[in-house]
Amino acid sequence: MTELVAELLVPFSYNYMLKAMWVSALVGGVCAFLSAYLMLKGWSLMGDALAHSIVPGVAAAYILGAPFAIGAFFAGILASLGMNFVKQQTRLREDAVIGLVFTTLFALGLLMASIWPTAVSIQTIVLGNILAIADEDVVQVAAIAGVSLAIMALIWKDLMVTFFDESHARSIGLNTTLLKVIFFTLLSACTVAALQTVGACLVIAMVVTPGATAYLLTDRFGRLIIISVALGVSTSFVGAYVSYFLDGATGGVIVTLQTLLFLVAFYFAPKHGLIAARRRRLAATEAAA
């Protein structure tokens, strides 16, 4: 028994594991915060688009030896501007524009990685590698996540009004354009941070699943955020921890955990779950009979 406990505590005795766990938790938390908004506006795929679009930026940063966050950030801004520009100038629908821009940039990233294979590890970018994260990268990730979390905590209500009813937001004097710019800037920044923990392919889950799960559990936006962040933090922490025993695959474990919790909510949520809905239907037919 004590042997088992000792075995389970092993990850906590390694510095790199501790680092991986708390960095993942922080990133998971802030991504979950953003997910509460993203999934409500039907912009979920924006997260995916951003994650793929920043790949060339990260690749360029590695080639130039610059901090990866800077490269990713510029690529993210470029992607959002590009999407907005194409959308405004053409009659193409939003999904087509997103698909067009993000695949273009992702392809560019792959191209750069194949031209300079020694400088860029495409596997690290696409799948993440939190267990082997360098100390200066930890600083970048922690700074991004910490600052984003602080800003979100200050403006969450303004963002809620803006996303719920932009006309009303304007009528109370909010600068809705600025708020949306801030939101998407934070989203790009946190996507970059999440790139380190789960990789470009799975970032989308980090900025969608916790919010979607929380949405099934509450009708109050404030609680939705709290539940979402709690889910993001706990799954990311546990995911990083479990990945020690599975040797790698942190992103896969985190996202699998998030999906499992989503399924639990999907079936068992007290009001919006499948079972509750079935029970209501049953009660209605009985009442009718």
Partner: peptide, 14 residues
């Protein structure tokens, strides 16, 4: 949108 009636009305006070 996951907001209650009272939350919407409170938005008027923001």
């Amino acid at each position: 949108f996951p907001v209650l009636v009272e939350t919407v009305v409170m938005m008027g006070r923001y």
